[in-house]
Design a protein around this nucleic acid. Structure first.
Lengths: 252, 252
DNA sequence: AACCAGTTTCCATTATTTGAAAGCGAGATG
DNA sequence: CATCTCGCTTTCAAATAATGGAAACTGGTT
């Protein structure tokens, strides 16, 4: 488990990932600076990425951006893992019932990855599908940690960095351990201005019939309308939606 | 203009692409066989892909599949290129108006890549977002060729392979050249059982204000309900929808 | 208990990547 | 108009990192 020893391929993939953080593309020199590899290395790697369709190159601006192959492949992932639109109606129903935004996330390494969201009628949430979020300051994250396989949970709980996102974030390990334990006991997690000032959320796990954790489902609202505690009245609706999702998502 | 895809990185990316063709994952040996690299090479590459999140590995089945990073990155592509859900309502309106399925595709190398589709109420189309299709046997493909930049169009028209998909497919180069020219003159393309037996389609280009080709938009129907010619009555609705899309999609 | 198909690890060989430096433009400056 | 400057592109000897055959390993089957 060494900190990944970057070979050539590792560099290429890191570069590709880095390309993703420039929505409007970037020049070879910008990218070289960002990933901190020698310029000519980056230049050559970019050519390879372009020739395989993973990146595209605009001659007029000399900018590189992510290519269509990424888009195409993602549909395979989405279909195979049930991250495609099929889950959306459940979130829409949930939002209709609660009047607040719904979010569906999965565990992705040491962060959570938002898969779907449906904005409430009153409020647009800043998290979008494809966005990552921390595990220790979000209702979704806490839920995903609390209900992942014991070994993995242990690993996360003890090694996760706990930087503060807001003054209310949990930054103390003992407190975090206790919080996760509480989430496990209750079966749901909250977040009260721990990730964004002014926002609260309530999340429950989506577990397959076999007991395996598939995702986490949350309702989020601005605190001026619903306090974290008031959100708890949505628990039955949330659990119901999670149950439906569990049947719909592929078991593994 | 190096057609070579040699190089370690090229192999890794080809392997990644190959993974995309196994929706339910594949074992290392299956993949090695498919891409025809030595087994140990494939094995090492797979490890790198997994450690970067581009692939995931299920220890219980020893199967590899595409990882969440692909999904995450694709949202960057989709947002930057207007391939996200924003275009969908236009297709939905079109399908509501015509009663037939709508499709939106972009040019991806020597194929077209379907970005969105909306099924008609009577019929489910077999093409899905993320699917590739040939350029010479589809209305979408012909349109994309006919309205791409002159130099590129020339290249495609003269070098594309023209394999038959059905008995009606265009397989003769001269015929194809003439067909593309006709599409350019009329401003729209049809397909009459040239790609799938029993299906016809009508497509128009989506061109940015600057004249640059952005995508192609099509209506498709089974011929027993609408002949290719009967589809032409939808031209005004199609053009209208294409105009709306042109304003909505980002200019480049 | 021996067998087999697939997976994981190892290592000497060698091809591949590397990155400084030298060409190119194209746009800015004197 | 000549010169400078900055960023993109290509080259090439040095050395690093990929290669792939083979051997150890696993676990399921005859």
């Amino acid at each position: 488990m060494a900190p990944d020893s970057a070979g050539t391929v590792g560099k290429a993939l890191e570069l590709l990932t880095c390309l993703g953080s420039f929505p409007h593309g970037a020049s070879a020199s910008q990218l070289a600076q960002r990933v901190d590899y020698p310029f000519s290395t980056v230049y050559r790697l970019l050519n390879t990425l372009v020739s395989t369709g993973y990146a595209s190159f605009e001659p007029e601006t000399k900018h590189y951006r992510l290519g269509l192959r990424v888009f195409q492949l993602s549909h395979q992932v989405a279909n195979a893992r049930g991250l495609n639109g099929l889950a959306l109606p459940v979130l829409e129903t949930l939002t209709a019932a609660t009047g607040e935004s719904s979010l569906l996330s999965v565990l992705d390494g040491e962060r959570h990855l938002t898969v779907h969201k449906v904005d409430g009628p009153q409020f647009r949430i800043t998290t979008d599908p494809g966005d990552h979020g921390p595990l220790h300051t979000t209702a979704l994250g806490k839920t995903l940690v609390a209900f992942s396989a014991p070994a993995h949970r242990e690993h996360l709980v003890t090694t996760l960095a706990l930087p503060a996102q807001t003054p209310r974030s949990i930054t103390d390990r003992a407190t975090f351990v206790a919080e996760i334990e509480r989430v496990r006991e209750r079966g749901w997690a909250t977040q009260d201005e721990e990730n964004d000032v002014g926002m609260a959320a309530l999340a429950v796990p989506v577990v397959a019939p076999g007991g395996r954790l598939l995702a986490a489902l949350a309702v989020a609202a601005p605190v001026f309308r619903r306090s974290a505690q008031e959100l708890e009245e949505f628990l039955p609706a949330l659990r119901d939606a999670a149950r439906q999702l569990a049947l719909q998502l592929p078991p593994r």
